[in-house]
Design a protein around this nucleic acid. Structure first.
Length: 518
RNA sequence: GGCCCCAUCGUCUAGCGGUCUAGGACUCCGGCCUUUCACGCCGGCAACACGGGUUCGAGUCCCGUUGGGGUCACCA
C-alpha cells in the first residue's frame, strides 16, 4: 500500500513550492490507489496552531487536494499533530538510549562552540569529542552534580557510508564520518524534527517520503534513526525545488520586493493588486503575495489551472502534452518522469495556463465565479437581483476571452454603475469625444439609436453602418467617440454587444451626458 | 569552506548512442483578422556550458573544468 504525506508547519500560509510538493505526493498516492496523509509539524510552535493551520487547510481544500488522514478528518493513527505525540517520541528516545544508538550529552553550548572553533581554526571537519557523553548512570550523576543538564544525541557511525536509492536522483551516498551527533531531544525534554519525523512516518506507515531536495542531506540521520529503531525506512524521493522568477534560488515568500523587479512577476502582482484594490481589500505583503496560494484564490484564478501549471514544474508526460485534468494527472503521474533540476516559477506561463482554462470554462460556472467579485466590490447586491444572472452571462459572452481571471470582471465596471456616475477616462475623452466632429455625429447618431428596433447588437450594428454610409464618413470617425461616451473607456468589449447590454435608456443617457461634458 | 545535488532555446520541457539539419509550450518579433482591447490564425528568432575520453557514431555514457544550487542548529 502506497502511503505518502505532506507535513506542513502551521505558518499561516500555503507556499506554492509547498503545494507543488504536496501535489506530487497526492498524485503519487492517488495514482497507486494509496493514501495521502496530512501531518502537522508543530514541534516548535508556541503560537496558535489552529489559527495558523486554517489557511493551509483552506488552501488545500480550494485546490481539491484531499487528504485521507490528518486534521479535521482524523484517521486510525490520530493525532496527526506532532505537538500531541510527545509520548511516542519519548518512547523512541528511550529505545535509542537503551540500544546505544543515542546518548545523553552534558556539554554546554560554550564547550561545544569551543570545539567547533578549534576545528575551524585547524581547518578540519568538526567531530564532537563526546567528552560530556554519559555512558553510565555514574557519569550522568557526576555531570549533573556539576549543575549540567543533558540533551540526547544520536551516536552516529563514524565509518562507512550511508547509501540509498533515491527514486528521483538514483543512488546517493554519504560518508557517515561527515555526520554530526545530532540532537534529538532538547534539554527541556521536547524532541526535534528528525526524530519526530521518523517516528511519525513509521507510525503512519508512510511508504514513500516525497519531499524537497533540501532534505536530501537530512536523509542519512533519518535512516540511522529508523534503522536503530528496527524500522524499515521508507522510500525516498527528493524533488528539485521551485526557483524564483528569473533566478535560480529557491523561491521564498520573504523576497517579494526582489521578485517585483522581475517584469513578469511584477505584472502578475500588479494585476492581482488592481483586483484586490477594486474589492476594497487591504493589500499587505504578508498575505497578498503570488508566492502564496491564497493570492490566486482571492484574485479569481481557477484551482485546476494552478494545479496544471504546477504539475508541469518539474514533471512532464511527453514532448507535447500540456493540459491535464486531475484525472489525467493522476493517471499519468510517475516519479520516473520528475526532473532532477530546479524549475523556475514563470508567471507568464501560469497566466497563459489560467487563460486557457478560463476559455474552456462553461458559461454557467463563469457566471458563478464572477458574481461574488461583483458583490464584494459593491456593484451587485447580495443576494443578487434576478436580472443579474442573465445580464452577467450575456456580458461574459460578449467579453469572451477578455476575462482571464474572475476578478477581471472588475475592469468592466461600466456595465454596473449608474449612468450619472460613470467615470470617463480623461485622456480617451479628450481624444475621442472633444475632437471637432465628434459631438455633432454623436448627437445625430443618438437620434437613430433612439429609434432602432429591436435594441440589440445586430440591429444597432446595422443602424451604425447605415448611419456611417449616409454621412459619408468612416466607421472609425464615430465608433471610438461612441465607445468612450457610453463606457468611459477607449477599450472594451465589442461595441454592439456593449450597446445591447447597456440597453437603450442607458446608452442615450450616457451619450447625452458625454455631449454635455464635451 | 566541507559534503551533497544539478546543467538542452529567455522560461517550462522532449530527448533514455544512430530516426536530432534537436521537437513542443510560454514569452518575444513580424504578418493576417478587426470599431478598440482580448482572442484566433500564419510565420519567425532562439538551446545541447566547456574540455577531454569511450564508440564506427555522443545532446544522450565516463572523467575533469566551469557555473548554479542545497546543506552544514537544542528550525522545520
Amino acid at each position: 500500500m502506497v502511503r505518502t504525506r505532506f507535513a506542513p508547519s502551521p505558518t499561516g500560509y500555503l507556499h506554492v513550492g509547498g503545494v507543488r510538493t504536496a501535489l506530487f505526493n497526492w498524485l503519487y498516492a492517488r495514482h497507486h490507489g494509496g493514501q495521502f496523509i496530512l501531518r502537522i509539524d508543530d514541534t516548535d510552535q508556541q503560537r496558535n496552531v489552529a489559527e495558523a493551520l486554517q489557511p493551509i487547510l483552506d488552501g488545500f481544500r480550494w485546490l481539491g487536494i484531499d487528504w485521507d488522514e490528518g486534521p479535521e478528518v482524523d484517521g486510525p493513527h490520530t493525532p496527526y499533530y506532532q505537538s500531541q505525540r510527545a509520548s511516542q517520541y519519548q518512547a523512541a528516545v528511550e529505545r535509542l538510549l537503551e540500544t546505544g544508538a543515542a546518548y545523553r550529552d552534558y556539554s554546554t553550548p560554550d564547550e561545544l562552540a569551543a570545539e567547533r572553533d578549534a576545528a575551524a581554526a585547524e581547518k578540519r571537519d568538526f567531530v564532537y569529542s563526546r567528552k560530556w557523553m554519559a555512558t553510565t548512570a555514574e557519569d550522568a550523576a557526576r555531570f549533573e552534580s556539576e549543575g549540567r543538564t543533558a540533551v540526547v544525541r544520536l551516536k552516529m557511525p563514524r565509518e562507512g557510508t550511508c547509501a540509498f536509492r533515491d527514486l528521483i536522483r538514483g543512488d546517493v551516498e554519504f560518508a557517515w564520518s561527515r555526520e554530526q551527533d545530532h540532537v534529538i531531544q532538547r534539554t527541556d525534554g521536547t524532541c526535534l524534527y528528525h526524530l519526530a519525523s521518523v517516528v511519525d512516518d513509521a507510525d503512519f506507515q508512510i511508504s514513500h517520503v516525497i519531499r524537497a531536495e533540501e532534505h536530501l542531506s537530512n536523509t542519512p540521520r533519518q535512516r540511522f534513526i529508523a534503522q536503530s529503531l528496527g524500522l524499515e525506512p521508507p522510500h525516498f524521493a527528493h524533488l528539485p525545488y521551485v526557483a524564483e522568477p528569473g533566478g535560480s534560488q529557491k523561491i521564498s515568500k520573504r523576497k517579494l520586493t526582489k521578485y517585483l523587479k522581475n517584469r513578469d512577476f511584477n505584472d502578475l502582482f500588479q494585476h492581482g493588486t488592481a483586483i484586490a484594490t477594486a474589492l476594497g481589500r487591504q493589500v499587505n505583503a504578508d498575505t497578498f503575495n503570488p508566492v502564496i496560494v491564497d493570492f490566486y484564490r482571492e484574485v479569481g484564478y481557477l484551482a485546476d489551472a494552478l494545479l496544471n501549471y504546477l504539475v508541469l514544474l518539474g514533471w512532464s508526460l511527453d514532448d507535447k502534452t500540456e493540459e491535464f485534468s486531475r484525472a489525467e494527472m493522476i493517471q499519468h503521474f510517475s516519479l520516473e518522469r520528475v526532473n532532477k533540476s530546479p524549475a523556475g516559477f514563470d508567471p507568464q506561463k501560469l497566466r497563459a495556463t489560467q487563460a486557457r482554462y478560463m476559455q474552456a470554462l462553461p458559461s454557467k460556472q463563469k457566471v458563478a465565479m464572477v458574481v461574488p467579485f461583483l458583490q464584494q466590490a459593491g456593484l451587485v447586491a447580495s443576494p443578487p437581483p434576478c436580472e443579474t444572472g442573465p445580464m452577467v452571462s450575456r456580458l461574459l459572452e460578449a467579453a469572451d476571452d477578455r476575462i482571464k481571471v474572475a476578478g477581471d470582471i472588475l475592469s468592466l465596471t461600466e456595465f454596473f454603475v449608474a449612468d450619472e456616475s460613470l467615470e470617463y477616462d480623461e485622456k480617451a475623452f479628450e481624444k475621442r469625444v472633444r475632437k471637432p466632429d465628434a459631438k455633432p455625429l454623436l448627437v445625430a447618431f443618438r437620434a437613430e439609436l433612439a429609434q432602432v428596433e429591436p435594441f440589440d447588437a445586430a440591429s444597432t450594428e446595422q443602424c451604425l453602418r447605415a448611419f456611417v454610409e449616409s454621412q459619408g464618413i468612416k466607421m472609425g470617425q464615430i465608433i471610438h467617440a461612441l465607445r468612450v461616451a457610453v463606457t468611459g473607456k477607449a477599450v472594451g468589449v465589442g461595441m454592439f454587444d456593449t450597446l445591447e447590454i447597456l440597453g437603450r435608456e442607458s446608452c442615450l443617457a450616457r451619450i447625452d451626458r458625454a455631449c454635455r461634458l464635451a
